[in-house]
């Protein structure tokens, strides 16, 4: 009998194939089967319905003369509201962290508490596969969710408004969706980091939620207090006032939520041409008008870099802690 021996690959196999693919598949299936996912899905669908309703009713409340003057009609679907409910962008900015935390807070510690981690690690897989699979599965799930929501909102808007979006608007909507996914991946990594640090899943959930609360509520209050203390008491020139304003803004930019909101505003409102304060001198002579997509993209460069950098720092920290840890059974 002739048997053909297939040599084992000596180098690391491609990430999508073999054991790693199986791990991602399993993680995604776990998410999709869980009650948690269904709850989040319900919440997001409600968000989508609510904010669409608010946007459309604000359109219909405007007089036709106003509507005729409006530019980027379609894009407004995502950012406008009649005041009864927040707009889609604000809703998603609020729920995104929650989604990220929910998908990641028990990534490592639940495996440990179930006694599956030591069994998993005794299989011939690289240890970082576990982390990568957890993160990529959560990222894939949130990407699928957000793209579907965007498509639903756009489709519904198309039906209700009867105006197709321009190429510019399509690009901006795509950018907004990608931006949101990047933002959520920051929170996924934070939650995974906490799931490595804390043994109890409840502790890691609370930990990540409190970081989120801190940045969404208390951080800005803190900066406010600091700014009031530092504010020059005497009369100051316009240039000084603008410089101080920009200094405070830079402090605020340590908050990832603030970075995301700035970037969202620039992407969804083409008329925004600066995130900071400008002097009269700088403004004089400018014609009000929309920026092209490329220019808006350039403007959110720093914000994007900040978000990516903090995501990478969180991931690296989790990686470091997890790779060095001795894993005992339960």
């Amino acid at each position: 009998m002739n048997t053909i021996k297939i040599p084992l690959p000596s180098s690391r196999p491609a990430l999508g194939a073999g054991p790693f693919g199986a791990m991602i598949q399993k993680e995604m299936a776990d998410h999709l089967r869980s009650w948690r996912f269904l709850l989040l899905l319900g919440l997001l669908v409600l968000t989508c319905l609510g904010s669409m309703y608010a946007a459309l009713s604000s359109f219909s409340s405007l007089p036709p003369s106003e509507l005729a003057k409006m530019e980027f009609f379609f894009l407004k679907l995502f950012s406008i509201s009649d005041g009864s409910l927040p707009s889609y962008a604000i809703f998603i900015g609020f729920l995104g962290p929650l989604l990220g935390i929910a998908l990641g807070f028990d990534a490592i510690n639940s495996e440990h508490n179930n006694g599956t981690l030591s069994r998993l690690l005794s299989q011939p897989i690289y240890r970082d596969y576990v982390l990568h699979a957890k993160f990529l599965a959560a990222l894939a799930i949130s990407a699928i969710l957000l793209f579907s929501l965007t498509i639903v909102v756009s489709g519904w808007g198309l039906l209700a408004l009867g105006i197709p979006p321009g190429a510019d608007e399509v690009l901006r909507i795509l950018m907004f969706t990608l931006l949101t996914i990047a933002y959520i991946s920051l929170w996924i990594n934070l939650a995974i980091l906490f799931s490595i640090v804390f043994r109890q899943t409840s502790a890691s959930a609370l930990g990540s939620l409190s970081v989120w609360l801190f940045f969404s509520v208390f951080f800005n209050m803190l900066i406010d207090v600091v700014a009031k203390h530092l504010a020059p008491k005497q009369f100051l020139s316009e240039a000084q006032a603008v410089a101080f304003q920009n200094f405070v803004l830079n402090l605020l930019r340590f908050n990832p939520i603030h970075l995301f909101n700035e970037a969202t505003n620039i992407v969804l409102m083409p008329s925004v041409r600066s995130t900071g304060a400008l002097t009269m001198e700088q403004i004089s002579g400018t014609l009000p008008g929309a920026l092209p997509v490329g220019q808006s993209l350039l403007m959110i460069g720093p914000q994007l870099t900040g978000l990516f950098a903090s995501t990478i720092v969180l991931f690296a920290l989790g990686y470091f802690l997890f790779m060095r840890r001795e894993v005992r059974s339960r």
Partner: peptide, 26 residues
Amino acid sequence: YLPEDVGFYDNRTGLENLLYTGRLNG
């Protein structure tokens, strides 16, 4: 290696747990 107090993915069947191990081993 069979760790002390081994755990399985509780939302899967015994067979599925074994098959997953099979996949991890290629």
